[in-house]
Design a protein around this nucleic acid. Structure first.
Lengths: 347, 347
DNA sequence: GTGAAAGCGCTAACAG
DNA sequence: CTGTTAGCGCTTTCAC
């Protein structure tokens, strides 16, 4: 509202309640130094006048905005939605509001947002899947600006971050495929500048090695977590002289695209080829065949990130390091035992 | 940052540039009354000092926040994500930031957010799929508070809103099914308190009537746009003495759930039964069989809503009414001609 | 063109 | 416990 006329301020409330506006301020801020009776009287006139404290003024005077900034790369997939749902749940009663910034994976945008935000707009920052945190984590840390990294391991130094056991998740999934009899598994990586993507790849390789299966380059397709990479990756594998019997995509979005590619070639899932994803986004269980995947507790990650941030906000000296949540293999319908050897010759 | 010490204000910039801080303010606000040379000098020192104007102070003094509020029911489905993507695209260069509020479909939360927001926190409001706008549209209108309704037709009065041609979309889709030979079509409605849901139902009925097909109550299942309704609705139809040959769900989420139900009964899509959705969320084309659906231009709706809001913000007297975007039938793989009559007896 | 001064609505000392 | 008094960083008159 620009019409100041119809805005009720603490001065009006004070006059109406017969106290000084300082007292009203105390009531607003739950200051103990107010007599119960006085407090009640102020509270009453506040609700009678439909008083709502002006956020900008509070933050200008008090030095904090009660807003937390949320930087996300995108909102396209359910992935981010799940995380936000978790954050939102924690936010509910906290009194903080959420400012949303989508970077569209532009590192430049990311930095410019952050430098601005840090200048007083928000009290803390939640960074989902940041692209180049190295560029500003130093800035943030040095200024003691509260922040939590979500699904990113930070820059080596310990900074508050939350993620899942990427290495272990990929390792388990690969092991599962191997136990089923798969020996040639095509792996589509995520964006390898992201630690999570590297960890998944390493978990995959480790499982192969532990089972004395050679790691062959032609079975590793470098992707970026984007849908298209799943598609082209799958086609690449299918065009191989000796195609894999299973495809392991580093996220569900790519796995689903791989499914499309496979089907376009007239092959069936999982009869002709098995496919496994990573994340367990909501769609994973909705598509047919339901996608076997590694579940990351995204909603929980959001929740915990918010909790961590609140804790830091409450106690700036509180030291938080990385939190890793366990992943879980969700066995569904996109995986089967590999076809018998005989067929290999035919292909 | 709570550490005021390391914040550079316009006072510092002024001192450094050798002008009064009023002049710096003019530069920031692109006031013409500044000599080009002076402006440049100020600009230079601003960037040298890495000055960033404090939003709260500007808004407190200037009476506007440069923030627009976005109220959404949820972030679960791609539906909202698409809309936000559109809003976000428009927001990009506008200088406005986005404050996100999720109501989780709680009308109470909706109202409390709005009353708060209207008190100066944001300059304008974008309301996606509001639940009970009638409760506050009056408040908003009377205060001349800028807002735009997205995917909601408002309350009869003309208020700025954007949506799609729901009636026509449902009509066309139904017609398409009928032309294919379907006579018994099960319709799962959306939440009928929403005009969009009613319009789709009416479009459906109108198409039946125009083709002299009776509208039978047992073929209309009342839902709420939630996933579960698609599931139970489909089961309800399947349990009918004479099940429909096609199911028309009022949104894609319910259509996908209906698919699950159908498959659990061991029936194939579209061979045994056809399914059509509404919205064309990203998943619709990703699932198998790809879902035939009515495309709502969600991203565009978001864009236009933002444009409308900016226009109102720029010129408060600008009168905007409802904008309706055309829908489009996306023919994919979940629809086929009905099975021959003979089978009907068997069921 | 530019400086000076008066707030915006509130928090946070500091008195009493 | 409560009133009073400075600002928070900026926009906006109003002078000159």
């Amino acid at each position: 509202m620009n019409r100041r006329s119809d805005k009720v301020t603490i001065v009006e409330v004070a006059a109406e309640a017969g106290v000084s506006f300082g007292t009203v301020s105390r009531v607003i801020n739950n200051d103990v130094h107010v007599r119960a009776e006085t407090r009640q009287r102020v509270l009453d006139t506040m609700s009678r006048l439909k008083f709502v404290a002006n956020r900008q003024a509070r933050s200008l005077a008090g030095g904090k905005s009660n807003i937390i900034g949320l930087l996300v790369p995108d909102l396209g997939t359910g992935y981010i939605g799940e995380i936000i749902r978790g954050i939102d749940a924690e936010l509910g009663e906290s009194g903080y509001d959420l400012m949303l910034y989508t970077t569209h994976r532009k590192a430049a945008k990311e930095i410019s947002y952050i430098t601005n935000l840090v200048q007083g707009m928000v009290d803390g920052l939640l960074l989902v899947l940041p692209r180049n945190p190295i560029d500003y984590i130093e800035l943030l840390t040095e200024r003691k600006f509260p922040f939590v990294l979500i699904d990113h391991q930070g820059t080596g130094e310990d900074c508050p971050s939350i993620g899942a056991t990427n290495w272990q998740g990929a390792y388990n999934a690969t092991n599962y495929l191997i136990k089923l009899g798969h020996r040639r598994i095509g792996f589509i990586t995520g964006w390898l500048d992201l630690g999570a993507a590297v960890d998944r790849l390493e978990g995959f390789k480790a499982a192969l090695r532990n089972n004395r299966i050679p790691v062959v380059p032609e079975l590793i397709h470098e992707g970026t977590f984007a849908q298209l990479d799943g598609y082209t990756g799958a086609l690449h594998f299918l065009d191989l002289k000796k195609p894999p019997t299973a495809i392991f995509a580093s996220n569900d979005v790519m796995a689903m695209a791989a499914m499309d590619a496979v089907r376009e070639r007239g092959m069936r899932i999982p009869d002709d080829i098995s496919i496994i994803g990573y994340d367990d986004i909501p769609q994973a269980s909705m598509i047919r065949p339901a996608l076997t995947t590694i579940r990351q507790p995204l909603e929980q990650m959001g929740r915990i990130a918010a909790q961590m941030l609140f804790e830091i906000l409450r106690n700036p000296d509180h030291k938080h390091n990385r939190v890793e949540l366990p992943t879980e293999l969700m066995v569904r319908d996109s995986i089967a035992k590999p076809k018998v050897k005989v067929n290999e010759k035919i292909l």
